[in-house]
Amino acid sequence: MSEFTQLMVSGVFTGMLYALLALGFVVVVKGSGVINFSQGEVVVLGAFVVSWLLTDVGVPFWLGVPATVVVMMVVGAGIERFALRPLQNESMLALVMATIALGSIIRGLVPMIWGDGLRSIPSLIDQRRYEWFGISIPTITFWSAVMVLILLVAFGFFFSRSRLGLAMQAVSDDRVAAQSLGINIRLVNAVSWAMAGGIAALAGYVWGSLLGVDSRLVVLGALIFPVVILGGLESILGAVIGGIVVGLVESFSAGYLNDDLGAGFSTVAPLIMLLLVLFVRPYGLFGRPEIERV
């Protein structure tokens, strides 16, 4: 039983970290409709920037992390301005390809600047794990989950209360109608990419603290898709719940199934779930069921 509880709790908390990765992706789909295959790379870039600021430059944590968020927001907006806006009226195929190209550029750029070695992010809290009722959770995972919840609430308010947030909702509902009502689509696109950059900075900090910073972190990019397919490509709440479900699937399959199905089954279990969801409920648990079947 305690094994079960431990697996469940770690699944939920790890799932919140997956949600953090997926949030940046979802915001871009919401604001600009683009399926972004480079979010994993943007997160890696964020991790390198934050590790560089905190270790090489020696900036304190309270300044380094917000500074990274700002830098990455600028990067996000820059991506939108210089790579995607010129393709504004092209097919979705071209936009998706552009994000794959961006991923390639970041993958080459990062080790050219920072080298191929493994870097680390200094930890803020000495204690590495919390032990509660016989269940152990890494400190960083716990506080990251708290951060995800705060972000979730903040986004909730942003999208339902602020003018810009409502404009983004409108754009994601119907781009043409929104445009004809005088909503500045370019601004919405830019803001959504900037937000994705900012979220990537936080995700980079969290995942970099957990795993160490090197270019192999790009494998994280593949974890985004099961989460967003499950939660719905453009639902923020869906991303969090999708993340938790994926975390649980991974944790339980690592705990109970690995030996029977072949080692390492836990990494592909979420992907198999992704296929099943596509078969049964392609718009996700929280997406809008208006997706057309052909």
Binding site: A83, E90, M97, A98, A101, I105, R107, G108, L109, M112
Partner: peptide, 15 residues
């Protein structure tokens, strides 16, 4: 690394 970057740049430019 330069090549990896150039691949990306080439794709973007062609697009």
């Amino acid at each position: 690394h330069l090549l990896t970057m150039l691949f990306g740049v080439a794709i973007l430019l062609f697009l």
